[in-house]
Amino acid sequence: MRIKKHPILGKLEEKEINITFNGREFAALEGESIAAALLANHIRILSYTEKRQEPRGIYCGIGHCYECRVTVDGERSVRACITTVKDGMRIESQGESPK
């Protein structure tokens, strides 16, 4: 999913760091948002809704819709789309998935 080479924007040369999502380790690039890092690792589900326990992911991408709320290092309801990844960050999805 990563655009390593772009005809106009050139090569992607950011430094690789590590994050975990629901306990599993993934590679991320310095400076990108949590949402982008997870999507690059094919993770689309960031939370489950309260009423219908439906999966939700990135929707607005700029912090307006609050659909991408995740728990980051214990802090709840952090917006994945406008929060930058940091090395060693522990990220967890929110809400309960249907059994």
Partner: peptide
């Protein structure tokens, strides 16, 4: 439209051109 993978055009644009991750294939 609430299913993960469905997003606003602006979200796709930022993911693609700023974060350099394709929103989908």
């Amino acid at each position: 439209w609430t299913i993960p993978g469905v997003m606003s055009i602006g979200a796709a644009q930022v993911l693609n051109n700023f974060h350099r991750v394709n929103p989908g294939k």
